[in-house]
Nucleic acid binder design. Structure first.
Lengths: 204, 204
DNA sequence: TAGAAATAACTGAGCGCTGAGTCAATTTTT
DNA sequence: AAAAATTGACTCAGCGCTCAGTTATTTCTA
């Protein structure tokens, strides 16, 4: 069990998913530093022992959570890759970052929690970095294709500008909460994109 | 002592500064969750008791550190406000965010550490939010003046785009470390600005 | 297919240890 | 000599993790 790729029994799979949900809730509400096995167990409605049984340690529990978070995020933006037209692809990638699944108090808090510990824990750093990089490459590819067809600024710069805007708006949503709702953030990101590509503004 | 505004003796002031330095080192290296009074005391080369004497609790110690961090950041960008020409002011504000003081492993790790805990601790959230807002307003004012004189895109959008780019690049520097050095980040921010204001590109 | 045997999943009391915070005693500053 | 600053041994609540025992699930056998 755990991080080997042994096929999990449905029972275990369900339990692990349930536990990870509880971890996310706990971290989002209390922060990583106040997340304890007892609290997670209580939130999940199971005994403390089962956490260790499935994830070996608190550390294992947190990295598993981060891994699942990464996978879920990846799944989300991979769907956006299916579009044929590069502008649609860029827009879909962008919209994915402002989807209701991502722009939750819960989810944003989780990302920032792990980013906050990333400097201290190489495991977190590597996982966060990898997720970020994969996504950035996808955007860069899409931007490259876009510029090749429609023209525009340097593709790399364009991609990074869009992604950076996202990080900034995520921070705003994370800190300001209700005063920067998802829809406003999305509208701002789109306005930014229009500014970067005035010649395609009518399609954005 | 502590957060009252009683004038501190030079002895206390020096000791508190020394302790806060140690907190920053400790948080940057081990993260908030692994920062203990013992570790901070050891790093500062003092006894554990003195931490409590000056800051009452671990919580007090951390909020004092955040407050000082805010103040230092504020001092830095306030200097940039002195410029007369609004373009110079925008550029100075931007450059401040990429100054060697800010773009340290240490400093970035500290910001992200507090942002990571912000969702769970209202005190941190409020402090981070306030700092962010003050700074954003300064940028918005400068952008507004700039657009009034030189023309360009919507001032608010411009300001937010610049600041968001910063947050994104801070995240990159934080996660990727050496692969995103300060100078490259600055160069990217400037290139982004040139894209947003082509008519002023030659002055950027 | 019923039921027994074997394995997997889970419980919760408990252990050792480390954390934050205390305080009487000591040193330093005023 | 009085006040302020500092020490470090101490407390004890709460942490991660263990493990003997229990329950659920799957596999085997007649």
């Amino acid at each position: 069990m755990m991080d080997t790729d042994t096929p999990l029994s449905p029972t275990s799979r369900r339990m692990q998913a349930r536990i990870i949900e509880a971890v996310i809730d706990t971290v989002a509400e209390h922060g990583i530093s106040a997340t304890t096995l007892a609290l997670v167990a209580q939130t999940a409605g199971v005994s403390q022992g089962v956490l260790v049984f499935h994830f070996r340690s608190k550390e294992g529990l947190l990295t598993a959570t981060l891994r699942r978070q990464n996978a879920e995020y990846r799944d989300l933006w991979l769907q956006a890759q299916t579009k044929a037209d590069p502008l649609d692809r860029v827009l879909a990638l962008l919209r994915a970052d402002y989807s209701p699944e991502i722009c939750t108090r819960r989810t944003l808090a989780l990302w920032f929690a792990f980013w906050g510990e990333a400097a201290a824990r190489p495991v977190y750093r590597d996982l966060c970095e990898a997720a970020e990089r994969d996504r950035a490459q996808a955007m860069e590819q899409a931007a490259h294709d876009l510029v090749a067809i429609y023209g525009g600024p340097d593709a790399g710069l364009l991609a990074r500008a869009v992604d950076s805007m996202t990080d900034g708006l995520w921070l705003q949503m994370h800190l300001h909460g209700a005063r920067m709702p998802r829809k406003r953030a999305l509208e701002q990101a789109l306005a930014h994109l229009r500014l970067l590509m005035p010649h395609l503004a009518d399609r954005i």
